[in-house]
Amino acid sequence: MFNLISLEGAQRVGFNLVGMLVAIEFRAVSKTFRGKHALRPITATVPIGSVYGFLGNNGAGKTTTIKLVLGLLKPTAGEVALWGKNPAKDRQVLRRVGCLLDAPGLYDRLTGRENLEVARLAKGLARSEVDRVLAAVSMTKHSSKLAGNCSSGMRQRLALARSMLGSPDLLILDEPTNALDPEGIAEVRETLRELPKTVGATVFLSSHDLTEVEQIATHIGILHDGRLRATGAIGEFAQESTRIVVDVHQASDAESHLVGANFAVRVTGPSRLEVTVPSGADPRVASFRVNQVLMARGLEVFGLATVGASLAEIFERLTSGTSE
């Protein structure tokens, strides 16, 4: 027995056309400022429940992308959809979104609580929401302090608290540790680490801090010069970039044999080389094949180990190359 669901109903809960549960969908979105491309056409999806790390160097187009998602900028071409709806046309969808943008956006002459009260009134939420979010970022006891007198870390936590008002289904955080002192970074990172558990929402986190993203992201997108270089589950990236480190008696001999067997090889020492696991291949099977090739040529193999790439390495690989 099948349950039928209408297209409209499917889009309401966030199904895209390929049947995936999607919080954000970029449909060939691009943005140009005075003829200059800030964002080349982007097509990507952010699955519901994921923590999506949106990586890119300064000026890569991350903030522009976020402003397009929130309907603050109009795309030059394409469309952004939140659970299937365009936020620029259907503002009610923004009820399900909380955000922290490139500046905390706090009013210095208001206390932390009053700042949250302003946002609560604008969103039309219950008074108790302010207490709940203050507690969530451990700011209850500092809530009567003027925002202008708070440390940068406290201000950022207040901004995070504001983004959590109304228990949004999607949290969009733009460089949440940017311009913070080391103490502030530690404070905010601690809050960020707890975030998926605390709010249980889809998190879209833009950053150029790879350590921060590596700790909490389930999916990543890498933006470079306004182009989305790659997007997907973080595990897929790690697998794609897995290498086999081979300790062998004669690395240069081994290299020629492995290249002959269609492996991508890099000699890293007199008796060590790295073999890149082919895209989509099982690293264990590839290791077995490497060993087989070398043994068949009579080369002594002392050790074989598979090593996954760090996010920094993946980022470096995808963003290296000439900038425009």
Binding site: K67, L70, G71, L72, R91, Q92, V93, L94, R95, V97, C99, L101, A103, G105, L106, Y107, D108, A119, A122, K123, G124, R162
Partner: peptide
């Protein structure tokens, strides 16, 4: 300047309210 100094416009305009009402 209350809004510009705080860089609060973006936060104000991502509420579900119509821009005209804001």
């Amino acid at each position: 300047q209350i809004e510009y100094t705080a860089r609060g416009w973006s936060y104000l305009l991502v509420t579900p309210r119509r821009r005209a009402a804001v």
